[in-house]
Amino acid sequence: MSEHHHDHLNATHTHDGKPIQNDEPPSIEAESLETAVRELLMEKGVITADELRGAIEAQEQRRPELGAKIIARAWVDEDFKQKLLSHGDMAVRSFGVDMKPTELCVVENTEEVHNLVVCTLCSCYPRAILGIPPAWYKRRDYRSRAVREPRSVLSEFGTIISEDRQVRVHDSNADLRYLVLPIRPSGTDDWSEEDLAELVTRDSMIGVAEAITPDG
C-alpha cells in the first residue's frame, strides 16, 4: 500500500518528519472566560490584583527541591518515612506544606515495585510540594499512554524496568495527590541528608526516572 494513499482529511499521522500534533490548540474560549471571571472578581472587590499576583508568585515559588528534601528525610529517618507513607499530610506539615483540600499519598519504590504517577483526566499533581507540573505531564500522549503502556513510556524516559519488577500506575483522578518515594541509591550510606537531596529529581518523584546514582 502506498504510504500516500489515504485520506488526508482524516489522517491522524503526518509525513516528512513533521511532528505529530498531540495537543489541543489553546482554547480562546477558555482564555476569554478566565479574563472575564478575573475582571469581575476584581470589579466586585472579591480579590485584588495584588492578591492574585501574590497567589501566582507563591505557587511558582514551589520547587521540586522541597520534595527532594522530604524524600531525603525519609531516606535517613525511618520513623519519618513510615509517617510519610501512612499519613502523608501530617508528615509534610513539618516542611511547611499544607495539602488541603487534597490529601497526599506517598508510594514507595522497592526492588519489587516501581510506581508511576499520571492524571488521565487533567493534570492533577502535588503542586504544594513539586510546584508547576512539567509540560509533558499535561500532554494528551503522556496522559493516555502512561496507563496503557507504562513500560514503553518509561523506556522513552530512559527508565527500563526489569521484568521481575511490578509496574504500578497511579491515576491521580480525584482527591489524592501522589508522590513517589524513590529507592535510595546504593553507595550513599554515609551521605548527609543535604547531599542525598541532590540525588532526588522532580522526575524521580513522578516515577518516570529513578533517583540519580552517584558516580564511583
Binding site: V147, R151, S152, V167, H170, D175
Partner: peptide, 20 residues
C-alpha cells in the same frame, strides 16, 4: 493491567490504582 487492557504488553502482575 491485563484486565484493563487484554493486549497489555507488560508483566502479568503490573497493576493500576485509581480513586473511585
Amino acid at each position: 493491567q491485563k484486565v484493563l487492557w487484554p493486549d497489555y504488553e507488560g508483566q502479568d502482575n503490573d497493576s493500576l490504582e485509581i480513586e473511585i
